[in-house]
Design a protein around this nucleic acid. Structure first.
Lengths: 224, 224
DNA sequence: TAAAGAACTGAACAACTATTCACACCGGAT
DNA sequence: ATCCGGTGTGAATAGTTGTTCAGTTCTTTA
């Protein structure tokens, strides 16, 4: 053999791959999934269109990885917020609030990841993404049920429904679009979180308390 | 003038238009929106592809009308069910149950109308459809609030969230797909209706009662 | 029955982008 | 210094469908 990949080359390749993914993510954040086209993404990443195909077999793979990436970040944020909470109910409230804040602060990206029509099939990736997030929420509901704070229920279905409610209310086509005002934004987060907690069986009064507490640490995120 | 549309011709034209729309609806019910392509729809309707364009300026218009059509039926069903209920809370429960039963009994169609990616822009029509249904639900929530059965709240946001929860839980990609068994189907309807009622502030115990009552008349639909 | 216009046909067209590939380039081994 | 294979390029290709339109058929009126 007369050629071997140097460490330096390996690093450069990895950087390029990451640059392409980042370019795709930025494109999605700017213009939704519709803006994630090979040629524009290549330009953003400072490579030629053909180069993209040295790193991703197809556009579907590129977008699938993008979805997985964003999903991973999201899941980590949810876990962090929930684990920092003092009890199971607070943890659930924190998890829900985190999702709400995240989707609101990156609405175009969230919509793209979740539901925006794409010309290639990314169903599998989207399902996996949802399943991860829903699984985490489901686990938090279950913990609260075990702690005796919530009535017994189908936690998987409940988690799915909760996420559907959040998404539709906050980034769906009927979501209020005048979310520039941070106060309104916080209101929306509080409202849907309250809805979500009551849905799984938290009493109204208690839910209100949990929401207020959960929104406190999330405020910083909203400000950002 | 040497030519005037006869009544007979007018009727035939209307019939053809309706046949095309029906063909589109059947295609969507069979294979989702992806199956609503001009050529196949034309074949189903027993006309040539070009003929479709004599009745609909574009595919977007065809699908938009399809969405509006289905939406109109849906809204009528919701109103009928809700108006037949004895009180505001029952009416809300009936409305929610109706939506749940409908989307479950025509899942492919519902998914197509609501969220399936389409290659043409039907956003406006989808938004209008959602707005109609959400408006109705919102009105029912408001009635229950006025009756003192529910806490005051942003009814529009609540309605949007409720629909999001129903759709995601019942026809979204994470929805359980073994809904062949009517018993499981009814379970799913009950579960999500319960979730929805609690979300807007119905107490757990009372919600359970409302759900049971609401599902009774809906059973017939499920059986169909 | 003939003329005139409307409706219908379906093959050809157009537009959009993902994908390919022949070639140029570069970094590493000898 | 020189060869070699991996890497990058971007113009050309390809496949998919919505849409058009010149020609045909049907319907109505005189």
């Amino acid at each position: 053999m007369v050629y071997r990949r140097t460490h330096q080359v390996v690093k450069r390749l990895a950087a390029r791959r990451s640059a392409i993914l980042t370019a795709a993510r930025n494109a999605a954040a700017d213009g939704g999934m519709a803006a994630v086209q090979i040629a524009p993404v290549a330009i953003r990443a400072n490579v030629a269109a053909g180069t993209v195909y040295r790193y991703f077999p197809s556009k579907a793979d590129l977008i699938s990885e993008l979805i997985a990436d964003v999903s991973r970040d999201e899941l980590a944020a949810i876990r962090r917020a929930a684990d920092a909470a003092p009890g199971p109910s607070s943890a659930l409230a924190a998890a829900v609030t985190t999702v709400a804040v995240h989707v609101l602060s990156q609405r175009k990206l969230a919509w793209g990841i979740l539901a925006e029509p794409v010309d290639v099939d990314v169903t599998a990736s989207r399902i996996a993404s949802r399943r991860e997030i829903a699984g985490e929420i489901s686990a938090r509901i279950e913990a609260a049920v075990r702690a005796g704070h919530l009535p017994a229920q189908d936690t998987a279905l409940a988690a799915t429904a909760l996420l559907g409610a959040l998404h539709e209310a906050l980034v769906g086509p009927l979501a209020p679009d005048n979310m520039e005002d941070p106060a309104k934004l916080r209101d929306a987060v509080q409202t849907v979180t309250l809805l979500a907690l009551r849905a799984v069986g938290v009493m109204d009064a208690r839910a209100r308390g949990l929401v207020v507490q959960a929104v406190l640490p999330a405020k910083a995120l909203v400000g950002a």
